[in-house]
Nucleic acid binder design. Structure first.
Lengths: 256, 256
DNA sequence: CTCAAAAGTTAGTCGCACCTAAATAATAGT
DNA sequence: ACTATTATTTAGGTGCGACTAACTTTTGAG
């Protein structure tokens, strides 16, 4: 189950090319929050290459027994492919976390940098980073960081679209696909672990009104100003994942 | 004279390939401490490729006007090539310095890691690193780190072989070519800025006996144990560069 | 001064990762 | 069920950076 040993390869083994590593990483991550089948054209769009390039590379990965693929069917990782994909995801997310924690990056800036660095740093450096951060288990966007042994801690989150008016939830993940959205949400004070309550769903995808409940550090409800109430569009609603606040949709009302 | 803007290239320009950057970097660094002409075979050995590969690449760099080269003659950087080589050297050395300062690398471990990272990090990251380190002007081996404007502070150092018996000097640079030597010198407590006195030169390159003068932090010469006296072979003698202790070859005798 | 050895270049090839264009398989509409 | 559309694969080609092998120029030993 060892998920390590990517950089500065250990003598004998023939390391995968960075491009192959990217394929495995992207396929692994695709199956993380969804079970939609991974197709050639989806990968092509995701990786920014022509579909024929994907066919080609999937052929090679298939003969390396890193993916299963019958022509015209969907693409799945083998056990070994899964390990390597997971190892790349670990690299990517540890690097993102490091950039935020140690070099003052904003969460909308880390993705592109990590995309390159994940192929460049050695295992030694990865371990130093992991140690310096204290073995974190999630990255700045709330995605789980697989442990060195392959352990993954998945929060039981759903997209904000799943909540009904009156429901509330704690933000557990924000998709890092769109940096512009990330900046926007940052401005709106939407952070990991913040509490969101759905006020009203508007019809025909014209948005949902939600309330960002300010952090409640001082357990005595201090002077809690009017909670900002905002309207989120569909992109935001599907990008923000929350852990449902179980039965009591009113954590705030419990002692008030 | 801008030496920046390598990573995440600014829109219009067609960035050089990592391999081209390596050539420019290596040629630049070759001229730093020596004026020996850079030849095809020297580059081939240095870069670990066949001489024909070098001929080929030098041809391309010549037509890009980054190097001057007439067939069978030596290779020199143009002004533009020099800028880009210097920029890569800056990247390399800042990264080395960062790895030692922030991630606890030993000086014999940084070179290989920096070799890869210098092509991977963005200008943003380079600037963050530079800032975090406080704009250092030399790396862990004593090599100068060019400033963002191209400024270079070269210590006026000579190889230890230049010193005569009785001469002393302050270590200003240790070539990072051979990690094994670096580890060895580390064990011997040979560091940057430490004082070395030449005791006796043995004939026929059979080594030179030197004394490592312990650091004199407490300006009162404290309890300075017997200075370790060691014999250095030729590889060490040419790798250690010192700034001559001007006239008084006996800094230690001055107050003793 | 000659000629062998060393240094450098040229020619041709290869694998990788991409592309476009053309062919084929799967899917959906009527 | 048949066809139009879409998805996927195949075929053929490109640039890069490496290689080997063969050739040319320079160097230096006697």
């Amino acid at each position: 189950m060892a998920v390590d040993a990517i950089g500065t390869e250990g003598a004998g083994e023939s390391a995968l090319s960075p491009v192959m590593q990217d394929y495995l990483k992207v396929i692994y991550a695709a199956n993380e929050w969804s079970d939609a089948p991974v197709t050639t054209s989806w990968l092509a769009r995701r990786l920014g290459v022509a579909p024929s390039s994907v066919s080609n590379m999937i052929g090679r990965l298939t003969s390396l027994e890193l993916v299963h693929h019958r022509p015209y069917a969907s693409i799945e990782l083998t056990g070994e492919g899964q390990q390597m994909g997971k190892a790349m995801v670990r690299r990517h997310r540890l690097i993102e976390t490091y950039l935020v924690a140690e070099l003052g990056y904003r969460w909308d800036q880390v993705h592109a940098e990590a995309e390159v660095l994940e192929h460049a740093i050695s295992d030694l450096m990865l371990n130093r980073i992991d140690a310096k951060l204290g073995q974190p288990t999630r990255d700045p966007h709330g995605d789980p960081i697989p442990g060195p042994d392959g352990t993954v801690i998945m929060p039981d989150a759903v997209p904000l679209t799943e909540l009904q008016a009156g429901d509330s939830g704690v933000v557990a993940r924000i998709c890092d696909d769109d940096p512009v959205l990330l900046r926007y949400l940052e401005d709106l004070d939407v952070h990991l672990d913040c509490l969101i309550r759905v006020i009203e769903q508007r019809p025909f995808g014209s948005g949902t009104q939600v309330e960002i409940v300010p952090a409640d550090d001082s357990t005595t409800g201090s002077a809690r100003a009017a909670a900002p109430s905002i309207v989120l569009g569909n992109e935001a609603l599907t990008s923000i994942w929350v852990v449902r606040d179980p039965q009591q949709a009113a954590t705030r009302g419990a002692d008030g």
